[in-house]
């Protein structure tokens, strides 16, 4: 069984460190209203094996909706993760890892909500608001 590459990351001030394995560090971006307000642009996460995650340091959690909580460093305010409550998975912020672990962008959520002033280049999959909600209504749910 492949274990996946070990990724180690930290927040801006270095107080929060994370260690996790990932077999395929794909990136996903979300343009929903809440992600935009929290990060100022979009939330970008790296796909990791959540069961291998260890987090140390002053990570704080804000319960942003019925379905999710958002992790940030209490010292410097760095965005750490978007956590889905139903399965306890922490979707780690791409910025934690140098070069975002080199992963390609594979998916955009709420792509129609991306502000018109910018766009993410690439031929990855883009899900509209409707498609995003449909995807998550089947399994878990988003903040929206």
């Amino acid at each position: 069984m492949t274990e996946g590459r070990l990724l180690q990351g930290r927040c801006l001030c270095g107080a929060v460190t994370v260690s996790v394995r990932s077999e395929d560090p794909r990136l996903r971006a979300c343009h929903c209203d809440m992600c935009r307000r929290h990060t100022s642009s979009m939330f970008m996460s790296v796909d990791t094996d959540a069961s291998t995650l260890t987090v140390e340091g002053p990570a704080q959690s804000y319960v942003s909706s019925e379905w999710a909580e958002r992790g940030f460093c209490g010292t410097c305010g760095s965005t750490l993760w978007y956590g889905t409550k139903h399965d306890g998975t922490r979707h780690l912020a791409a910025g934690l890892f140098d070069n975002a672990a080199g992963g390609p962008l594979t998916l955009e959520f709420f792509s129609d909500r991306c502000p018109s002033g910018y766009e993410l280049a690439g031929d990855h999959r883009r899900l509209s608001t409707k498609e995003t909600i449909e995807m998550f209504t089947d399994a878990d749910a988003t903040d929206e």
Binding site: S41, M42, S78, L96
Partner: peptide, 16 residues
């Protein structure tokens, strides 16, 4: 937009 490492860490991805 700034892509320096400090801004990437703080924003989680893309700093604006």
């Amino acid at each position: 937009i700034c892509h320096c490492r400090m801004c990437q860490r703080w924003s989680g991805g893309v700093f604006m």
